[in-house]
Amino acid sequence: MRLEPIPNPSAARRLGLPALALVATLGVAMALALIAGANPLAVLGQIAKGALGSKLAILETLNRATPLIFTGLAVAVAFRAKLWNIGAEAQLYAGAIVAVLLGTGALGSPLVLPVSALAAMLAGAALLLGPVLLKTRLGVDEVVTTLLLNFIMLLFVSYLLEGPLKDPMGMGWPKSPALIPEARLPRIVDGLRLHWGFALAIIAAVVVWVIQTRTTLGFEIRAVGQNPEAARFAGMPVNTVLVKTALLSGGLAALAGWSEVAGLKGHLSSDLSPGFGYTGIIVAMLALLHPLGVILTAIFVAGIFVGSDAMSRAAGVPTYIADMLLATALLFMVLAILLTRVRVVRG
């Protein structure tokens, strides 16, 4: 077997293969259900129903999608410049910490929401500044540094929750005190359990899209990502562009944590994120790094999580099926993207 490049992939190939990847993913899902001893079609139906079957289900899915849109955007922005930010998880927690620090009485209304959002973005940006400077100054691989920061951050959060930020009324639980009401993100519509974080995430995606297509920075980010040598030759400040990209990416990831605390949970605990930072990579890749695509893929991924929870309760199939599904979706999608550009020939 050999791989052979295809110079001009047809539209059928470019659209058909990703569609095929989704179908293949569903096939794997059914096989998994079968192994778990359940009716495959029923399992798929219950996942769909659990994710979208009622007003409550849809709202739950959108709530779950909110942090994923932010982390997906953070990854999409960085990867576009070939800056491999694997540390969205850490930046998310940086944003969450800031939400607690400023939201538990340090600031009063009406300043607290905008100020803490900005401060959260700055914290996330600052967290990515170190790795990107190490990369541009000393050539240190940012995959390693950003990944390691995730673990450091998680330990730091545990320390905070056992120490300085521990809720004295928490009956020993490692969680922070609750945010004051003025520091909470209100619901978009009264009575519906969906907070403004979701709207903010949509706005963020549109803003990122506008930045990428309409601004000089977006032009620079794309140029540096595609051919840094040509970008430098043309007079672009390649390192500055990478730093700006990192600030944008880190800031977006931090908003994920900030909006989870300010919008959904109202306090910080060390299980705030079930890996939203890592799942953001899947979200961004599935969206082919397109910022508006991130909205859709984030909702899709959130739907699978939420739907699997519901399905698991009803059919007794473990929720791990959600992780398996996402992993296979990603693998098939990467394969589909590869196969749009090369074909396998025998010989």
Partner: peptide, 27 residues
């Protein structure tokens, strides 16, 4: 001299996008 997957317009303004083909930060 060029970025392979950029189109001719993008390649044409690669050097002067700041000075001639943008207003403030807008392309």
């Amino acid at each position: 001299g060029s970025i392979a997957d950029f189109d001719l317009t993008e390649n044409a303004v690669l050097e002067a996008y700041r000075s001639r083909f943008s207003r403030r930060a807008w392309m």
